[in-house]
């Protein structure tokens, strides 16, 4: 069996960074990245992007050398993706922030609403219910990040954490400020509106959790395999019949429920922005399902049944 030679050039300057001779033909990109790190310790594997073309797509970690369209001397182009941080860390900081920030407003700590309101409590039941719902939502997310999600990509660029935290923390503070404000106005249709909203919220939270469990079962621990998710015996997962990303559908539903419950404009805006972002993600996921699986169920839409 013939060995391969691999040279790695800088994608921008074309400078030769590394030459590996006698690489096994079955070597994966992940293994090449590990070899490359030995000569350039500052670029740990997660930071590296290797491509066949300087401006082309990054090769996947599991791509095998002999299956790539290269001769026995392969030229790979390297790009530094910048400092990386693990998804778990990002998610934990993103979600712990809103949980904590919301509670600061709920307990009306000093310097927010004026001295005479410090540590007072709202006289509206819905404010307390909203706090329970908001906290529950983020505690659920934190626990899911720790115990349910399996991440196919280990890391993301460090700067994302600043961007994402500004978004989540900022919105949380903005919403919490109004919901816990001493001059808060309770919902127009009173208890009826709150009950309906609570029902929407609880159903969507259960649905979201069910989908996360179903997705977890789809991907065995430690693997990166991808399969088409199908409904299971749990009725909440039946939404998979109609959409590719029911977890997003349920997430948007939760926030709409929360917006109806609190009747607070910033919550509605947060729902809208979240919906827009999740639609973009869902469309991407939907597209990749269609590309990957020829027998993908044709009835499915990305996020909203029959519509979007």
């Amino acid at each position: 069996m013939k060995h391969y030679e691999v040279e790695i050039l800088d994608a921008k300057t074309r400078e030769k960074l590394c030459f590996l001779d006698k690489v096994e033909p079955q070597a994966t990109i992940a293994e090449i990245k590990n070899l490359f790190t030995k000569t350039h310790p500052q670029w740990y594997p997660a930071r590296q992007s290797l491509r066949l073309d300087p401006k082309g797509k990054s090769l996947k970690d599991e791509d095998v050398l002999q299956k790539l369209p290269v001769g026995t001397t392969a030229t790979l182009y390297f790009r530094d993706l910048g400092a990386q941080i693990s998804w778990v860390t990002v998610f934990l900081t993103e979600y712990a922030g809103p949980l904590f920030i919301y509670l600061l407003f709920y307990f009306r700590v000093p310097f927010i609403y004026g001295r005479k309101y410090d540590f007072t409590s709202s006289r509206h039941t819905v404010v307390h219910l909203a706090c329970i719902c908001h906290s529950f939502h983020y505690i659920k997310r934190l626990l899911e990040t720790l115990f349910v999600h399996r991440f196919s990509h280990g890391t993301m660029p460090l700067r994302n954490i600043f961007k994402n935290c500004t978004y989540y923390w900022g919105f949380a503070a903005w919403m919490a400020y109004y919901i816990n404000h001493p001059l808060y106005t309770p919902p127009t249709y009173g208890a009826q509106q709150v009950k309906l909203a609570l029902a929407i919220f609880v159903i969507c939270q259960l649905g979201n959790f069910s989908i996360h469990m179903a997705l977890r079962d789809l991907r065995p621990a430690g693997s990166k395999t991808r399969k088409i998710p199908y409904p299971t015996r749990n009725p909440f997962t039946w939404l998979f019949l109609l959409v590719s990303c029911p977890n997003y559908t349920y997430e948007v539903g939760s926030w709409i429920g929360f917006a109806i419950m609190t009747q607070c404009l910033p919550v509605a805006l947060f729902s809208l922005v979240g919906f827009t972002q999740m639609t973009i993600w869902a469309k991407g996921k939907h597209r990749s399902y269609l590309k990957e699986f020829r027998d993908y169920p044709p009835l499915r839409m990305p996020i909203i049944p029959f519509l979007l």
């Binding site: 109004y178 404000h181 808060y184 106005t185 609190t262 009747q263 607070c264 404009l265 910033p266």
Partner: peptide, 9 residues
């Protein structure tokens, strides 16, 4: 300004 039924200022 608060209060209003949209809980927004």
């Amino acid at each position: 300004s608060l209060p209003n039924k949209y809980n927004f200022s």
